[in-house]
Design a protein around this nucleic acid. Structure first.
Lengths: 188, 188
DNA sequence: ACTGTTTGCCAACGGTTGTTGGCATCATAG
DNA sequence: CTATGATGCCAACAACCGTTGGCAAACAGT
């Protein structure tokens, strides 16, 4: 396994991807134009097409970051709620690609389908540590999703001042108990 | 005060508004085209312009429904959380215009600004019944907003199956305690 | 130094969108 | 019945978008 010879265009590709992630995260797929991304990267729009094939492929490449939530096995059961919030938003703060995917899921039914898949896979995986019955797992995963995505919506998209001003620790303290309840306490 | 003479075009205007509300709610402002709305209403796109001036004015007219949450004074304090959820989603279920406004707030910064205003006015008004300190009112209104808008996002936009399948009573039972806590219980 | 490949820009196409002006048709007041 | 305004459609414009093809310059291997 050897690294392929570095090409001169690698820097350009990286600049395009960085600009794409920023634009897709801030403006969404539709409003982020190839022309604007190219201008941010300081090159011609046609270069984007040459290196990434199409706008759709550029988006797929730009947001293709693994989504795995870190392991939670070492966390005491009573603190799982806070831990989930903490690690979830460490992810959101670190990479605008996650935001770009949520923005797209809002506007594109196909992307919404993929987001449903993430909820039923990644979110449900967290719940499965507490619950055996698979129907109940899905139901609790849905509860968790409403609160987590609601925070993301208000914080990164609507930019509600009192939600956007909190740091991750404050988020964990405020919303940890809610997630804890959705994960483990009896359902109505 | 007398009603102005009914015109023959009133039916057309109503058909346009109905189609606009449906399209704006289902596809959002950008993807809902004047041509599609006109086709739904069975008339020519230019008629939309004649009767409403511009796409922007059409949207403003279509979603101009009062947003007032019904009074909560007759509700026992311990059941306020459930009551808020119940009445909030009675509103969402009844009129696609509310959904259209959320969809637009996601894509348009100016609409997001208006949505922040709604949160700081309507949502905060509910909280003010429980809390005196104005900073705490805004903070609790933010907490409530994340959960309510998160449900709306997962239910009407992402269409997460387990969230979309619930009826309003199930929503009230599942999320009422959370809202109750955000409204009245001590903050961390 | 020469040749082929890579990197970049420019101009343009085809499609979609909001928007406009003109022209036919219908209803209604006089 | 006639004249006037309301109602509707058609065609087109201007702007923007993703996308394409061709051409100049820079580079790399020999």
């Amino acid at each position: 396994m050897h690294t392929p010879k570095p090409r001169r265009s690698d820097a350009t590709k990286a600049a395009i991807l960085a600009a794409a992630r920023r634009r897709f995260g801030a403006e969404g797929y539709d409003r982020a134009t190839i022309r604007a991304i190219a201008a941010d990267a300081g090159i011609d729009p046609s270069m984007v097409m040459r290196y990434f094939g199409s706008k759709e492929e550029l988006f797929a490449t730009a947001v293709d970051v693994p989504y795995r939530l870190p392991e939670l096995e070492s966390v005491p059961p009573a603190e799982i709620g806070e831990a989930v919030v903490r690690r979830m938003f460490a992810l959101w703060e670190g990479d605008p690609a996650v935001l770009a995917r949520l923005r797209r899921a809002v506007n594109d039914p196909e992307a919404a389908e993929r987001m449903r898949g993430v909820i039923q896979d990644e979110f449900a995986a967290v719940v499965r540590a507490f619950v055996a019955d698979e129907a109940e797992v899905r139901r609790r995963a849905g509860l968790v999703a409403t609160q987590i995505l609601g925070i993301s919506l208000c914080r990164y998209i609507l930019e509600v001042p009192d939600v956007a001003a909190m740091d991750v620790e404050e988020l964990a303290a405020s919303y940890g108990p809610t997630i804890q309840r959705y994960l483990a306490e009896p359902l109505p």
